[in-house]
Simulated scan of single mutants.
Amino acid sequence: MISIDPKQTSERDNYKLLIGTVIPRPIAFVTTQSEDGVVNGAPFSYFNIVSSNPPMVSLAIQRTNGLKDTARNIYNNREFVVHIVDDENVEKINKTAASLPATESEIELANLTPIQSEIVSVPGIKEAKVRMECKLVQSIPFGGDGPGSDLFIGEIVRFHIDETIYKDGRIDTRSLNAVSRLAGSNYATIGNIFSIERPK
């Protein structure tokens, strides 16, 4: 067993250890809107559930030379839309990871279709089977010696679920076919599914 002190290694080396071991990671495709009305879209795999009462999700956005557009927009208007990445939209969504100026929309670059939200002002995209309109509950900036990050907790104020994956109040895992993030350029789809009964 190798023992590593994260304070004695670089931020990049710690990053590689994290993304190589905390797998698979769900991917949130997040849309936000700038003060000038530009719709920004970007994928993030530092993403998970926080609570079901009320329903909340977490999103951590790493800093590279300051705030990313998504983080800046969330701080400014306190709204965002989270989409689940699946096997049918992953190619287009991957294109939105390109570095664009804040004045250009990744949605347009990837030929994704904006769709109006019901509660928040930020549009979502039509190509996702799951879309969650979120309002910011809490934001926590993290510093450190490296670039740092910003953690956002959002309350889901509206779910939009494709009828093809929804039955009797549950999501059909295979029909959703969510894609997860691994390390490097690697992704994974849902493979073998097995059940283990939880102890009483």
Rank of each mutant, 00 (worst) to 15 (best):
residue 117 S to D: 09
residue 87 D to L: 06
residue 165 I to T: 03
residue 173 T to V: 15
residue 60 A to D: 01
residue 14 N to M: 12
residue 190 I to Q: 05
residue 150 D to A: 01
residue 136 L to R: 04
residue 34 S to Q: 08
residue 46 Y to S: 14
residue 150 D to N: 04
residue 29 F to G: 03
residue 142 F to W: 09
residue 161 I to N: 06
residue 20 G to W: 01
residue 175 S to Q: 14
residue 126 K to G: 00
residue 25 R to S: 05
residue 26 P to S: 10
residue 161 I to A: 08
residue 27 I to P: 08
residue 21 T to A: 13
residue 30 V to E: 02
residue 10 S to Q: 09
residue 7 K to S: 14
residue 38 V to W: 11
residue 139 S to M: 13
residue 111 N to E: 15
residue 43 P to F: 05
residue 4 I to R: 09
residue 199 P to R: 12
residue 145 D to S: 14
residue 173 T to N: 06
residue 33 Q to D: 00
residue 102 A to N: 01
residue 36 D to S: 15
residue 43 P to Y: 08
residue 61 I to Y: 02
residue 138 Q to C: 07
residue 158 R to Q: 14
residue 96 T to Y: 03
residue 193 I to T: 14
residue 185 S to P: 05
residue 195 S to T: 13
residue 177 N to S: 15
residue 178 A to T: 05
residue 88 E to R: 15
residue 112 L to E: 08
residue 22 V to P: 00
residue 141 P to V: 07
residue 134 C to R: 07
residue 49 I to Q: 11
residue 147 P to W: 00
residue 155 E to D: 10
residue 164 T to P: 00
residue 44 F to K: 10
residue 7 K to C: 01
residue 153 I to F: 15
residue 177 N to I: 00
residue 73 N to H: 06
residue 59 L to R: 10
residue 28 A to Y: 06
residue 123 P to L: 13
residue 54 P to V: 06
residue 69 D to M: 02
residue 10 S to L: 09
residue 144 G to L: 12
residue 34 S to C: 10
residue 113 T to Q: 10
residue 106 E to W: 03
residue 28 A to P: 08
residue 183 A to R: 05
residue 106 E to Y: 03
residue 108 E to M: 04
residue 101 P to R: 01
residue 86 D to R: 04
residue 57 V to D: 02
residue 142 F to D: 00
residue 26 P to W: 04
residue 153 I to E: 08
residue 129 K to L: 14
residue 172 D to E: 14
residue 161 I to V: 15
residue 100 L to D: 01
residue 68 K to Q: 13
residue 176 L to D: 10
residue 81 V to T: 09
residue 21 T to H: 12
residue 77 N to I: 15
residue 85 V to L: 11
residue 110 A to L: 11
residue 91 E to Q: 14
residue 103 T to Y: 09
residue 130 V to S: 05
residue 34 S to I: 06
residue 48 N to R: 01
residue 125 I to D: 08
residue 197 E to D: 15
residue 97 A to C: 03
residue 44 F to G: 10
residue 96 T to M: 02
residue 188 A to N: 12
residue 200 K to Y: 11
residue 191 G to Q: 07
residue 149 S to D: 07
residue 46 Y to M: 14
residue 103 T to W: 04
residue 166 Y to S: 10
residue 149 S to W: 01
residue 157 V to R: 12
residue 164 T to K: 14
residue 123 P to S: 12
residue 159 F to K: 04
residue 159 F to V: 05
residue 124 G to S: 15
residue 120 V to A: 06
residue 53 N to T: 12
residue 76 N to P: 00
residue 135 K to G: 00
residue 148 G to Q: 02
residue 107 I to G: 02
residue 173 T to S: 11
residue 6 P to R: 07
